[in-house]
Amino acid sequence: MPSLLIIVFILQLTIHSVNTFGVATINSLLWTLFNMLPVPTSKAAAEQNDLKSQFLELRKEMNATSSQDEFAKWAKLRRQHDKLLEQIEKTKSTLDSTKSTFDSVVNGLRWLGLNGVRMLLQFWFQKQPMFWLPKGWAPYYAEWLLSFPRAPVGSVSIQSWSIACMAIILLVSDALVSAVGLALAPKAPSKTAEPRKAPSEEKAARAEESRSQSEKKEL
């Protein structure tokens, strides 16, 4: 059996991942995977995808057809366009009702599987120390806070361990996001400084300039 420390950490990591990617995104992915199975809504979902493909092709063809020069062809495409749009709306209303029920069930199962399990673990193991602190490592009030609410003083409770795991996960996540952002950010073009002339070259240039000025005066 895996250690309780690892279970709590994985649970907190999963909760953070769900909150990061978003519930709606995960539900949409699960809905797509669900319709790949032999379920009653799979046929309707496949039919809707096929209708959408036909609709996009017909819309593209209709936009390429002039309503003035080729009115008969454009009117025929328009009728087909409206018919497909009506069919898409009909299948969409049916699937939306089923998807709403699916989202409610998934949200409930996700809450039970994540937050429900976390609350159950914190209640069941509230008296069990996760690990013991070295003696004299922290003052009494710090030991009492780390053992809150019912773990032995001098140990770390499951609640404190959960908070520590979430804090570490947030720090690492923010650091990774910042690193990726810096890596993908466009770099500003560096200005190349002009090479500085040596003192001998500067003297020669000044002498040449003064000689040219004196020649102009003589002229």
Score class of each variant (00 low, 15 high):
Lys73Phe: 00
Ser93Asn: 04
Thr94Val: 08
Thr98Lys: 10
Ser104Trp: 00
Arg118Val: 08
Gly116Tyr: 09
Asp82Thr: 07
Leu95Pro: 02
Leu77Ile: 04
Leu112Tyr: 04
Val105Phe: 05
Leu85Met: 10
Thr91His: 03
Asp96Met: 05
Leu85Asp: 09
Arg78Ile: 02
Thr101Met: 11
Thr94Ala: 04
Leu114Gly: 03
Asp82Glu: 13
Leu95Trp: 01
Asn115Gly: 14
Phe71Asp: 03
Thr98Leu: 12
Thr101Arg: 08
Glu89His: 04
His81Ile: 04
Leu112Ala: 13
Ser97Val: 02
Leu84Met: 11
Leu112His: 11
Leu77Gly: 03
Leu109Gln: 13
Lys90Met: 08
Gly116Thr: 12
Leu95Met: 06
Ser93Met: 06
Ser100Lys: 05
Arg110His: 01
Gly108Thr: 15
Ser93Asp: 08
Arg78Cys: 05
Lys92Arg: 06
Thr101Glu: 14
Val105Arg: 14
Lys92Thr: 11
Trp74Cys: 05
Gln80Trp: 01
Val117Asp: 03
Leu84Cys: 07
Asp82Gly: 11
Gln87Glu: 14
Asp82Lys: 07
Gly108His: 15
Leu109Asn: 12
Val117Trp: 01
Leu95Cys: 08
Leu114Cys: 13
Trp111Cys: 10
Ala72Ser: 05
Arg110Leu: 15
Ser93Glu: 03
Leu85Cys: 04
Leu112Phe: 07
Thr98Asp: 07
Phe71Cys: 04
Lys99Arg: 10
Gly116Arg: 05
Leu84Glu: 09
Met119Glu: 15
Glu70Cys: 04
Lys73Met: 09
Phe71Glu: 07
Gly116Lys: 05
Ser93Gly: 05
Ser104Asp: 01
Ser104Ile: 06
Met119Gln: 11
Glu86Lys: 08
Thr94His: 03
Val105Ile: 14
Asp82Trp: 07
Leu112Trp: 00
Gly108Lys: 10
Leu77Val: 03
Gln80Val: 04
Asp103Thr: 12
Ser104Tyr: 01
Phe71Val: 03
Lys83Leu: 14
Trp74Tyr: 06
Gln80Arg: 14
Lys90Ser: 11
Val105Asn: 09
Arg79Pro: 00
Ser93Tyr: 02
Leu84Ser: 10
Asn107Asp: 15
Leu95Arg: 02
Glu89Leu: 07
Asn107Arg: 15
Gly116His: 06
Val117Tyr: 00
Leu85Glu: 13
Lys76Leu: 08
Thr91Glu: 06
Phe71Trp: 02
Trp74Gln: 03
Gly116Ser: 14
Leu84Trp: 04
Leu84Ala: 10
Leu77Trp: 00
Leu114Ile: 11
Asp82Arg: 07
Lys90His: 07
Leu77Met: 09
Arg79Lys: 08
Leu95Val: 04
Arg78Lys: 09
Leu77Glu: 01
Asn107His: 14
